[in-house]
């Protein structure tokens, strides 16, 4: 299953990449491939912008705008003019 094409903000800076393979390890959609000590993006449209790769790239080679991907959160953001939010802080219990 794939979502809309050509929207993912995922970017790989091959100048900083060391080919350690961490991005390929954490990606739940198999977006990265490692060859010749270098990572590459195989299919950007598979990316769901979860941010696991950026969070675990020790070399700062990956950039992706990750965030809450649910419609109600983004509508909240549109109304308040801020970032998409579930309307609850990290101290609330509900996953909304």
């Amino acid at each position: 299953m794939k979502y809309l094409a050509g929207v993912s903000t995922l970017q790989l800076d091959s100048g900083r990449c060391t080919g350690c393979g961490m991005c390929a390890e954490v990606c739940p959609h198999g977006v990265f491939a490692i060859a010749d000590a270098m990572a590459s993006i195989t299919d950007k449209d598979k990316c769901m912008e979860c941010g696991a790769c950026e969070n675990n790239c020790a070399f700062g080679a990956i950039r992706v705008a990750s965030g809450v991907g649910c419609a109600s959160a983004i509508i909240n953001g549109m109304i308040t003019g801020g970032e998409p939010t579930c309307g609850c802080g990290p101290n609330d219990s509900a996953c909304c």
Binding site: M1, K2, C47, G69, C70
Partner: peptide, 16 residues
């Protein structure tokens, strides 16, 4: 879109 394992924020924003 908030419950799937494959939709991302940029896509939902565009769709919305």
């Amino acid at each position: 879109t908030g419950s799937t394992t494959f939709t991302g924020m940029s896509g939902v924003k565009k769709e919305l």
